[in-house]
Amino acid sequence: MSNNFAIKTIDLTKKFGNFTACDNLTFEVHKGEIFGFLGANGAGKTTAMKMLSGLLSPTSGTAKIADYDIYKESEKIKKNIGYMSQKFSLYDDLTIQENINFFAGIYGLSNKLIKEKSEVVINELDLKKQQNKLVGSLPLGWKQKLAFSIAIFHNPAIVFLDEPTGGVDPVTRRQFWDLIYQSAERGLTVFLTTHYMDESEYCNRIAIMANGKLAAIGTPKELKESNSSSSMNDVFIQIARGKNYV
């Protein structure tokens, strides 16, 4: 297996009873890539992401995350990934600094490093004044930017973002994407799900899921050409309906 892949899956499948949420997913994500995962509600995106981030164990198939085996080396995977879910997942009743201290500490960063790095991050996010305020008092967009920064605080190889910009205003969404680009330039692999089609165009490559299967994969340009559409919106509607599988 090549070392150029951040994620490589072969026939990854997850069944809940008779229902197959993810059906033989085979795909690769390159290192440093921004990879978008699209699909209608219930298509199996979140289940796939949960398997890749170690929250769910697959029914069958294999996957390597950051060159670690999903079954045998899950502890190593956990140390090398970051995760941010659609539900806001920091502690509202802790301050910004306390959230950073807690999560960074869990990943084993030294207190000295946490102190130095949190100063940089807080300055970048322009949260100096709010540093010792409870996170619950921040507006949603700020919270999500903070959650992203905390998810990548420990320098993971891959970060998983599950609908990170849901409910966030366009300006903040733009800032959020700046953060993603900056991180990707530093070599971080970003794996994200989204419902915003404009966001999907920002991705290097996209996979579209329909009914638990991988329906299409490629760059936004390729997908538009092969479906002879001018916008990702049309591509999505055609494929997510499940008419033409790859």
Binding site: E75, K78, Y107
Partner: peptide
């Protein structure tokens, strides 16, 4: 509140 997921992906 969903923080358990965040905890579960950590080591």
């Amino acid at each position: 509140i969903g923080t358990i997921e965040q905890i579960n992906v950590t080591p």
